[in-house]
Design a protein around this nucleic acid. Structure first.
Lengths: 338, 338
DNA sequence: CTGTTAGCGCTTTCAC
DNA sequence: GTGAAAGCGCTAACAG
């Protein structure tokens, strides 16, 4: 493999000159010398060795991203697209993504190791939780990072997130325009930040439509298909003209539970909106109306933030929530006339 | 950030000694010197700089993996799990995964760039095609790689694959044991290598069960839900006692098409086996019997192969097909009695 | 305008 | 047993 030395010899110039030309430094170099260098580069097929460059510059040009373990039966609608678009955005900025894994109990060790060995220049975090220890750790270390998802609101760090409030708001608006008035929501436990934004959007949209909130229309449960089933089972106990005619769910999985339970009970005409647009949701019966997260935009925003941070600047914007897109399919329609 | 020099000074020994101790070389060093070194390391919190190590060793300890673009409406059942397990296996072997992307027309450029800059030590390829140009290129370059998926049978390179033949064979066996005799298959166009293995398994299983093959029971189409619908539409034109009672599909997506079309036509009792176990397949109505690819094993096998190659050895085994697991759910049952 | 040279942090040969 | 020093390939300050 040719090195810069070989190019210098081939071109009959010094290695410094080669370096200047290659890196296009604004050091006055005669045009024919430049040509000489490029021709030599061409002739011997030289490409700079990134490891040597990185050593010199004390950088790695790598952004770490923890790939989460996904149980085979769980849905990871978003993260594979996120990885793809993040890798792509990183490449445009001259970086690559280094993926790594960790178990539940050695999380910070793994991050710490990657920092200390100078394996990566920054991290992208996804699947953030409230009071996420990784964020706390990285802030304490002063190590560059940005997250997909919010965390403790009192913490000051760069994040990009889906605007869940806006998403729920739009979903309810969609149902209202279809003529629904009895609109329920399936939410996560209150500890979930993302979940609470979605609940707020639901409440705001109800208020905007002049529909009073009913406690019994808000069902909270875990991230599972069963939660959707439980919610519908509960609501179907209500007198017919009290039952919700439309449901917005905090996730597609819960939405699917609602559809499945409705089918099982012969209650075919409940309108359901999911959240995420998981693969296959368009092939469900009925195909699922849902909110698609703006993943490409999120990836781009994150990388822009990191780029700024790595250049010693303050990212602008620093924290941003991007609206999801309502994908209207067959699971929502007018309420049953009665 | 402390360097090996700092450790040497702190321990009052030479740099070389520190390196010997740290790397546990079998060079005779007094035990108390060793202790001195480790204590110094501990005290100043030293961790070797991987970039410097890599420069010295002319390696990167990175394995490149191209992350494929997935249209938002397509199912990528397998690749996100594959990425996770491959990253994990790589870490156990002392490597990390560098993910990168490419468009249709610059594929080889991207691989070439990664090689020439010495960004990666090897590649893992997925989504291989017959006569895959990437494989051809990497063989020509003599650059280390291994693939998830086969290619041109005349080419000699290390691969791991799902044993699609075995999978189809088992799926047909399952239907036969349930009492089916009219078993159809949905396949991909003949150009698909993976598809043809699955067809062969189907044919072999029929033969083993003494069931003659009927041309009209083999439907070929693209990778889509529509293909499944088309196939079922076609078969449902047949006289009732000629129609297939069981179908094995080359993918879950096609299987879902069959289920959806059967539902639309009120033909509820056709048994269907998919392939892949995509997320959500368990929540379909009916939940889908399918073949789950042995992803963790595939990842491990690939990394073992690469490890051998990177150590200058010949991997053993060199090419291996691992059987998928039949996951039995509600979409298969006894044929309608008649 | 161009070349010499000192590192970046590490490993390893060769001397002592 | 341990240390001095060369060198991996590159960049950039400093000379000339």
């Amino acid at each position: 493999m040719p090195t810069i030395k070989d190019v210098a010899r081939e071109a009959g110039v010094s290695i410094a000159t080669v370096s200047y030309v290659i890196n296009n430094k604004d050091i006055p170099i005669r045009d024919d010398t430049r040509r000489l260098v490029w021709e030599a580069v061409e002739r011997i097929g030289y490409t700079p060795n990134v490891t040597a460059r990185n050593l010199k510059a004390s950088q790695s040009r790598l952004i770490g991203y923890a790939w989460h373990d996904v149980p085979p039966d769980e849905v990871n609608a978003v993260l594979d697209r996120f990885t793809y678009f993040t890798a792509q955005a990183a490449e445009e900025a001259g970086y690559h993504i280094l993926t790594f894994t960790h178990t539940q109990d050695n999380v910070l060790d793994v991050y710490s190791e990657l920092i200390r060995t100078r394996r990566v220049d920054a991290f992208v975090l996804a699947g953030t939780m409230i009071d996420d220890p990784r964020i706390e750790f990285l802030m304490a270390q002063g190590f560059p990072f940005a997250t997909f998802g919010r965390s403790n609101p009192a913490w000051d760090f760069p994040w990009v997130d889906t605007d869940g409030l806006r998403g729920s708001y739009d979903a309810v608006g969609h149902l209202v325009r279809l003529g629904h008035r009895r609109i329920a929501m399936i939410a996560w436990p209150e500890a979930s930040l993302a979940g609470e934004f979605r609940v707020r959007g639901y409440l705001q949209a109800l208020r905007a439509a002049g529909i009073p909130f009913r406690e019994s229309y808000l069902w909270r449960g875990s991230h599972s298909e069963q939660t959707g089933r439980d919610a519908l089972a509960y609501w179907s106990q209500m007198p017919f003209d009290e039952r919700p005619t439309g449901v917005i769910a905090v996730s597609d999985l819960a939405a699917i539970g609602v559809l499945n339970e409705a089918e099982a009970r012969g209650l075919g005409d409940v309108s359901v909106v999911g959240f995420d647009d998981v693969p296959l949701s368009q092939y469900l019966r009925p195909s699922l109306t849902t909110l698609r997260q703006p993943i490409p935009e999120i990836s781009r925003a994150l990388i822009h933030m990191l780029q700024a941070i790595l250049n010693g600047e303050t990212p602008d914007p620093y924290q941003v929530a991007l609206p999801p897109q309502l994908i209207i399919r067959a699971s929502t329609g007018a309420p049953p006339v009665k």
